[in-house]
Design a protein around this nucleic acid. Structure first.
Lengths: 317, 317
DNA sequence: TTCAAGACTGCAAACAGTTGCACTAAACCT
DNA sequence: AGGTTTAGTGCAACTGTTTGCAGTCTTGAA
């Protein structure tokens, strides 16, 4: 039924090992033989069976990618970039979704371990010790979290937050709100410390908030009452919700209030007003993560963020 | 290093075949033996190697999912649902992106063929004959395209388009524009024939247009000049672009013009005005597709679409 | 001419499981 | 009691490749 290495061997009058070598170590076989084998293989439609190959070599040429929520607009560009980087080196990519549950995350890593050469973990929710234990079973690289013993790709949100607040300062805003994220969030803390360091602006922290549109919407009242003229939101979803909430309170953006988000997700770009935001290098992170994985280097890299100025910020009234 | 079936066999004093059976055919082994093997396996941390298993059984317990563009907001909910359906039955999911290129699509199917038990293809761009040839190498189910010999999941856009135009009619619109999609598109044709059948409204077709925000933006002038009071756009991106374009021309939605989109992507829900749109059952389609694949049934199913009325439609002036 | 060194190629043993078949022992019938 | 079924287990062949080792045949050098 399916054509194997043996069929090719028989049809081209050589031993299977020679066929094997023409595919996995071409330099070891005579040019003439090689081309004969190759044409025969082509005619027969032979393609090496990767499962079988994995059995002896221990390398599957598969990678795993685990994210918290595929449908969260933050992730698809990362997934896409990771996929393309993987394909470029002839790897296939398993994609998995944990639905934000740490248990699912650990289970997934376990399940992947025999089937992949490595997995990239985006903003994992599991405990450090769980991850360290799992790191022994399969190599992985972590995005947006520090973890000893694993390669790490960080996106420098702190820098982006500083740029954002500086941008507001330049526009003339002196009192700025930070609509923060969930309580324990590493990112949220990072944003806060960076934002606080900008000279000349007084920062009022409003939160914690759910990292969603709804969270932003709910914070609108407190933002209005805080007497600020500009706000930095935990992420674009929060910013979008906030803008809507402010609208319901009769405040328009950017005329009455400037708002900047973080992440640069598609909906922010499409929204009206178009959201000024901190662009996260998600695509670069995805690409880099799989490159690190394939080369099995264990570095920790930090990627630059940048500010994208659109229509949701302006000088204060 | 890694613990194999033989280690478990030795440690529990039975033959490997018994261990094998306790995992893949538990009813064939004595309850006492089974539980002993199970506890030993647990202690040793044994997990069957799927690659090896695939070699003999021919079933990999992997599925492939091929979409045109992972980062297109239309797909992530489908991917997520497909993943969750797959996991439920203990399958893993390869996800791949063709970047809209038919050649990549065919190459991907080929590459997957030995590694998966089936692949689901979303709105494939390849030719019918290419697909039919590939269908012999690996079973697949196709979403949003008719293809003989393959299971098919259709989303009934026609029905949705009719609902949309009827909605506009009920609001009092008598002359409605259809801002259509790309020239050869099956979907676009489907939408048009359905929309034309609604009694009491005169349909003017504007297009073809690129299926993007930009395409919608560019069509704004023609829409204004066509003397319509409502429009049905090829998809949400087009609708969003159109709304922006109309805004630049001084027309606001829904006061001066009603706009309804198709797809119900996240940005439309977040946008202001919130987009009235035809919700495509993408999640259901993804889930169903993998279910069909796993059960290897070859049916063709049509999924209902529904109208989601939000803020971008109102009675004409 | 002889020998060593390469360059190719073949042989066969892995890799980690599954499964048809044969075998044993106990249980069931008559 | 003797024969037949049945449940449980072991044996060994098989899945499609890779790879260390050994063999053959050239080729170049002494």
């Amino acid at each position: 039924m399916t054509v194997t290495i043996r069929d090719v061997a028989r049809a081209s009058g050589v031993h299977v090992s020679t066929v094997s070598r023409t595919f996995s170590a071409p330099h070891m076989v005579n040019a003439a033989t090689r081309s004969r084998v190759l044409t025969v293989a082509e005619e027969l439609g032979y393609r090496p069976n990767r499962a079988a190959r994995a059995l002896t070599t221990g390398r599957t040429h598969n990678l795993g990618l685990i994210v918290a929520d595929i449908a969260n607009p933050f992730f698809p560009p990362l997934i896409k970039a990771a996929h393309s980087a993987a394909r470029q080196r002839d790897y296939h990519l398993f994609v998995a979704d944990t639905d934000e549950e740490p248990a699912a995350e650990e289970e997934l890593i376990q399940a992947f371990s025999k089937q992949v050469d490595g997995v990239v973990l985006c903003s994992p929710r599991s405990s450090n010790k769980a991850l360290e234990r799992l790191a022994e079973r399969v190599p992985f690289v972590v995005i947006n979290r520090r973890l000893r013993g694993a390669a790490t790709v960080l996106m420098d949100v702190g820098h982006g937050a500083r740029l954002a607040v500086e941008h507001l300062a330049e526009l003339g805003h002196r009192r700025v709100a930070l609509v923060s994220g969930p309580a324990g969030s590493w990112t949220s803390a990072e944003i806060r410390t960076a934002a606080e360091q900008v000279p000349g602006v007084e920062l009022v922290v409003i939160g914690p908030n759910a990292p969603t549109e709804r969270g932003g919407f709910a914070a609108a009242g407190r933002v209005r009452d805080s007497g600020v003229t500009g706000v930095l939101a935990y992420n674009d979803l929060v910013a979008i919700g906030l803008i809507e909430g402010l609208g319901d309170l009769g405040l328009s953006v950017p005329e009455d209030m400037s708002v900047v988000g973080i992440d640069d997700i598609v909906p922010g770009r499409l929204n009206r007003p178009k959201l000024t935001t901190v662009a996260m290098p998600t695509a670069a992170a995805g690409r880099l993560a799989v490159d690190l994985l394939i080369q099995e280097v264990s570095a920790t890299t930090s990627l630059e963020t940048r500010l994208v100025i659109r229509d949701s910020t302006a000088a204060p009234r």
